[in-house]
Design a protein around this nucleic acid. Structure first.
Lengths: 227, 227
DNA sequence: TGTACATCAGTGAACGCGCGTTCACTGATGTAC
DNA sequence: TGTACATCAGTGAACGCGCGTTCACTGATGTAC
């Protein structure tokens, strides 16, 4: 979709014009696919997946709506790339929380800290970027073949799996509790995010939210690590 | 919204006409608010909250779209009653699962069975009525004042709370783990439902789904009941 | 190095659609006398 | 019991909106000779 050539062309053009505002570089945009994706992602960031409107994205980039069809088969294809970007940002938020962790000696406590960090990063992303969070898990009109039959959002799932493996290695989680532990750990945090975002627990204040997360993660850990 | 008088009028009219199909009873419908709510709920059942279209509901009832405005302030008000109906059906599914439970002697095992039943009923409803499930938790344009500041979907929350209280009484859940246990128990099942419905875990087959639920609930119970 | 030409990436006008909502209206109902 | 009249609950036409998408087109780009 976005070749190295396209990038090169864009750079050439943008450096040859002086003080040109970023919006357009002439009749040929040079990087429309990327620009539309960014604009559409921004729409999703503010209004969720329903706000991803092809015409609005084109408008924002300063291009006719028709131009989008040179780069995306249809509206659904545009939403799909936004969904992927949103998933990428979610994983990024989780990794960021991991990176913030201080070094720990004991592998067991280190592993538990990582598990907590993943949950905290997940929830933080959901609450600070509700639009993107919903976009990351939105239902597409026709899901692409690559995704069907696989676990979507695989990077996050894999990240979680690694931390759980570490906890088994450290002797914190008994091997018998390892199967499907990803699901058992993921679902609670995902559910909490949805309950806070979309309804029943929306009325919780910041402190109550923190307490709810803490309680939820404590329960997961107590359950997974029980002999 | 729907007075006893309205009902009485409807019954009078409908019994005075012979073999009249249920759709209309003359110029005055007699029970339009209810009929529209039912039609709108059916739309949500098939297509989720986005499918609740005022004109479509009116069409289905065989009434002009304008007529709906005699009974609902606007589209949002219609969605709100659908949301409430969906929540009612969800609680009903949970109660149904409780009712199916055989009697048990030990209060501890009985309580755990009830907790499992609530989770199973919740997930069953989510998977068999995905449209209504999403409607039950949909975001409204302007949430009504009564709901803001309260925990929405209170009946389900309360039902869960009672079972958890029983588990404390039975000595299964230590009192120290009781606070916010509703959230810790609700979030995992809610999250699992969403993960299966809207994406990442959609590819799971029936057996895998059952295993995922079982693992998830086991982990909750192990966590909540840990000394 | 210059030029003809195929290809690519844009344009703007227009289509049909279905929505929520408003308007002025009219038929049915119920009540006061 | 009958009649005038206010009120209630419908009607149908129309509005404006914004959407996704298609059409025939044109300006820019890159390549073969």
């Amino acid at each position: 979709m976005l070749t190295a050539l396209t990038y090169a062309r864009m750079l050439t053009v943008s450096t040859s014009w002086h003080n040109e505002p970023v919006t357009r570089h002439g009749y040929h945009h040079g990087d429309l696919a990327n620009a539309l994706t960014t604009a559409a992602t921004e729409l999703a960031r503010q209004g969720g997946p329903e706000a991803v409107v092809l015409r609005a994205a084109a408008r924002q980039v300063g291009v006719s709506a028709t131009a989008a069809y040179r780069h995306f088969a249809d509206h659904n294809a545009l939403v799909l790339v936004v969904k992927h970007r949103a998933q990428d940002e979610l994983v990024e938020a989780m990794r960021a929380e991991l990176a913030r962790l201080p070094a720990a000696d004991d592998p067991g406590t280190a592993g538990l800290a990582r598990l907590r960090a993943l949950g905290a990063g997940y929830l933080r992303f959901a609450l600070t970027e509700p639009g993107l969070f919903r976009a990351a898990f939105c239902k597409l009109d026709e899901p692409p073949a690559e995704v069907r039959g696989l676990i979507d959002g695989a990077p996050a799932y894999q990240l979680l799996g690694e931390v759980l493996d570490d906890l088994v290695d450290a002797g914190v989680v008994p091997p018998a509790r390892r199967p499907l532990a990803e699901v058992a750990a993921w679902a609670p945090v995902h559910g909490l995010a949805h309950l806070i975002l979309d309804g029943p627990l929306a009325a919780l204040g910041p402190d109550e939210r923190a307490a709810a997360l803490s309680r939820t993660v404590d329960t997961i850990i107590a359950g997974l690590s029980r002999p």
